[in-house]
Nucleic acid binder design. Sequence first.
DNA 1: ACCTGAACACCGTTCAAGT
DNA 2: ACCTGAACACCGTTCAAGT
Lengths: 184, 184
Amino acid sequence: MRADAQRNYDRIVETARQVFREQGYDASLDQIAKLAGVGPGTLYRHFPTRDDLIDAVMQSWVDRVEDTTDKALAHEGGPRELLLNWFEEYVRLISVHKGGPAKITSAMGDDGSPIRTKCEVLRAANERVLEQLRAEQAVRSDVTSLQVARMVGGVATVADQSELEDAFVRPMLEVLADGLLTRP
Amino acid sequence: MRADAQRNYDRIVETARQVFREQGYDASLDQIAKLAGVGPGTLYRHFPTRDDLIDAVMQSWVDRVEDTTDKALAHEGGPRELLLNWFEEYVRLISVHKGGPAKITSAMGDDGSPIRTKCEVLRAANERVLEQLRAEQAVRSDVTSLQVARMVGGVATVADQSELEDAFVRPMLEVLADGLLTRP
DNA sequence: ACCTGAACACCGTTCAAGT
DNA sequence: ACCTGAACACCGTTCAAGT
């Protein structure tokens, strides 16, 4: 990539990160281009769709997913506490930008989505948690990581769009956890 | 209301119903006005916001909610089957138009929303089902109809945005039901 | 009292002209 | 090879002029 192209690319991603943080994922691309000091055509050359830009912004965030999963898996306490803690972390992970939960969760399982690699990372994280709990026979064996990602993502989507406080989200995650855990 | 105003009002609502059915709740209001044969200003005079128009379109649909709830409450079989059957009907009820699940579920609990009366009807329907199950001690006593509306609405939102088949939705509703039912 | 439709601001997208 | 920015189509919203 030519030096000026690389510079523009980086500028756009950095500006987008800021604007998305303030206004959410449906912010104006025109405004991002203006703030980044490039023409709208330049933004479109690098990122043909909004999701391509979102994918680039998400890049730096992938490592955090791995770390968060590691920590959740090392959680003290029983399977219920482990699962609940993971759900809360998962909601936090996909809720960093307004509109994120809906965007990520609806792309989950869509192989053609520009953000599919990010979805795959999240699905794999859920799979790791499920595997550990399956080994303890603590969780239903017929439930898939895709289903879990969709259900927790559904709660996160509602919470994001209704701007719910954490205190209102927690009981819903508890119901989900109880539905997934095997009866003692 | 003047005769021509009434006529325009009805035309707009009827046209909106058709366009929403084909294109979902985020269809162009400009197009609806054109198809209804009125100026854009007329549409705005009658319906200051998109949600006001959606509310009017939903009006005819309220009766169906009551009926569906009655039928679900008379369902044969155990509490789990009753709850599952109701969830499936509920998802159907809020998914008649694309974008409906998200719109309805995110307005749930918001007293300032133009569609709040419709949300209240749906919340009350969930309350009726919960009350019957509570009487049988079949369902957790600490769960509210608002929570249920949000959780099932969350699943419906994901299903709507990912265009999931019913077969993929059912197992998620099962997890929800199992999380809500008391342990036998 | 209500309607019309021009006008405005904004957005996404394309593409000819430039370097 | 890449960028610029004018141009286009579309949308929501407002409001002066009409009936």
